[in-house]
Amino acid sequence: MTALLQVQNVNIHYGDLQAIWDTSLDIPEDRIVSIIGANGAGKTTLLKAIAGALTPSSGKIIYRGREINGLKPHQILALGLSLVPEGRRIFPRLTVLENLLIGAYASKARRKRKQTLSSVYDLFPILAERANQLGTNLSGGEQQMLAIARSLMSDPEIILFDEVSLGLAPVVIKTIYQRLKEINRSGVTMVLVEQDIQRSLKTADYTFVMQKGQIVLQGMPGKLTEKEVKKAYFGI
């Protein structure tokens, strides 16, 4: 199994504060990998660094055999790596359709935007109905769908999801997870950062548990015992 994305011995600092300590992980192609951990464990920081929004102070991030740390977010996106940020980050003064079109801003994605748009509308029909409304007029669940759809518009090979279910109703979360599995089956590798341990373990092919800026446990969800996960998660 070849790794699509490799993080090797990465350290990340915010000023004098170290958030990530010597972290390494491999993301295999076509799989769903989850990263779980308590608040402040460094999950978001790690995703931001992979997407280029933060620069690691040391270590390597390798995507398809190419070192990408130091590249700008728009360069990394053009290589096929997309991040769905925490809190959805819908552009408030843009309509749903405009938000989606911004997702296809990179020139390669822009050429096939019509085709991508229709497949995205098939996946989330509500977005077609609401195309001309402002993105912020949607409900929380619909906004999350928009954020996922906007990321798909860039025609990515791998998507990093940061807290995709945070603050949403269980029935909405269920729908979104069904869609995520469909997207994965169409050949998109996924990294899910989640606080919802149960759902995360149920969906993922492989799981990493982070605590205080380090990976403390990893394995296939079926092989990890609840006791091990709890211990790693809470550090007790």
Binding site: H74, L77, P85, R89, F91, L94, E98, I102, A106
Partner: peptide, 22 residues
Amino acid sequence: YLGRAIRAASDDDEAAQLMGIN
């Protein structure tokens, strides 16, 4: 496209970068 990108960047700079806008 450029006009929309300018508005998006104005709304949320970091999110715009993550969507591929320099």
